[in-house]
Each structure stands twice: as C-alpha cells, then as structure tokens.
C-alpha cells in the first residue's frame, strides 16, 4: 500500500494546473489510482496557487502535513510557504527565479533571501535541488515553458511517480502552438536533472544543489 504525494506550488499564471493535470493524466494512463486537487477562481488572480496530486492508495485530495514526497516549486517564496508539508523524506525541486509579491513590502515580512529560503528548505527536506527554470526554458526557445522545464528536472532526477515515456507520449499528443517547445523544454530539464542525479557538477543554470 504505497502512496506518493506530489505538491506543485507557485503563483497564479505559472501553469501549475497544466503541470498537475499532465502528471495526473500520466498516472491514469499507467493504471495508477490518482486524485488531484486544483485551485480555481479568485486564487488564480496572481495569488499563491497549489496543485496536489496523490498517487496510489489514496482517497483524500489533500496532502497531509509532512507528507509531500516531491515538491515542485515554480517560485522560491511559494516553496517556503509549502514547508509544513515537507519532511526529511521530501525532495524539493525549486525554481530560483523570484516573482516578488506585489505592492509595498511589509517591513515585518520582507522577501527572504534566496539563500535563506534554500537553507530553510534544506533543513526541512531530504534533498533540495535549486534550478533557474527560466534559463532552461530559454534554451528551449520558449520562456513560458519554464514550468515544463522544471518538471523535466524532477523527471531527470528520477523523482516522478510516473514514467518519463508516458509524459513524452502525452506531450506528443498535445497540440497547440507551444507543444514542440514544451517537449524541448522538458528534455532540456530532464538532462539537467539526470546530470544532477549522477552527482556531476551542476551545469550552469543549475544554481545550487544540496542535501540537508
């Protein structure tokens, strides 16, 4: 009776729903039980957004505290906000590119430095991989595919609960103007992830990798 919980966190407009649906679709394609929880409506207007995808022997659509096996965060602050769902078993794949929350910053609550964020995540999780997803996506020629590139990194690290081939197949089935760029971005992410998994020196745009 195994369960795998994937939490995707970011800001409304970053394509969180798209990545979540892709993973859930891949799980279903492989005959796994899947439950996914989505954020719609008000929360999408530039607010903090999460998708939760649970695989295996699950019925609740919400990941309990400390039980995220994999956190894919498209924005560092949103990774930090998801910290209560992490434990020493969790792997975090975190974009290093910052989206400052809008408006005048509350002096009591400054945006933490990226080092502080990564250090705090490393203390809570088993492994934190920090990547500049926008730079990876730029290499694919489509910056808006950064979400897919980050998913690719998680795949390359061997941390996804679905097979990479299934995702490749789904990408090939998708149509639309960005389908090709998406597949390229995913593959570039995968390569970066695989290099990290092999313990090679992180190639540039991969900013930092560490374990806590």
């Amino acid at each position: 009776m195994t369960r795998t919980n994937v939490l995707i966190a970011g800001v409304g407009g970053q394509g969180i729903l798209f990545i979540g649906k892709l993973l859930a679709q891949a799980g279903m394609r492989e005959g796994q039980q899947v439950v996914m929880s989505e954020t719609h409506g008000l929360a999408q207007r530039g607010g903090a957004v999460v998708s939760e995808i649970r695989f295996g022997d699950v019925s609740s659509p919400i990941i309990p505290a400390g039980e995220a096996d994999l956190l894919i965060a498209f924005e560092p602050l949103e990774a930090l906000r998801s910290l209560p769902r992490l434990s020493k078993r969790s792997v975090v794949v975190c974009n290093t590119s910052i989206l400052p929350p809008f408006a005048i910053q509350d002096p009591e609550s400054p945006y933490p430095s990226i080092d502080t964020i990564l250090k705090t995540l490393q203390e809570a999780a088993a492994e934190v991989v920090a990547v500049n997803a926008e730079e990876l996506a730029d290499r694919a020629g489509e910056r808006r595919s950064s979400n897919v590139a980050l998913l690719g990194v998680a795949a390359g690290l061997g941390r996804l609960p679905v097979k990479e081939e299934t995702i490749h197949t789904l990408f090939r089935e998708l149509t639309g103007p960005r389908a090709e760029a998406n597949l390229r971005a995913f593959e570039i992410g995968e390569e970066a992830g695989m290099k990290l998994a092999e313990g090679a020196a992180p190639p540039s745009p991969v900013a930092a990798a560490g374990s806590g």
């Binding site: 800001v11 607010g47 400390g66 809008f102 509350d106 009591e108 400054p110 203390e123 809570a124």
Partner: peptide, 16 residues
Amino acid sequence: PPRPAILDHLPARPPI
C-alpha cells in the same frame, strides 16, 4: 515538528 519562525513572517501573496 517545530515550525521555523520564518514561516510566521512570510510576505503574503493575495490575489490582485
């Protein structure tokens, strides 16, 4: 597990 103090001072990100 103890909650890191930093979590009590995160900048909010409400919808806008």
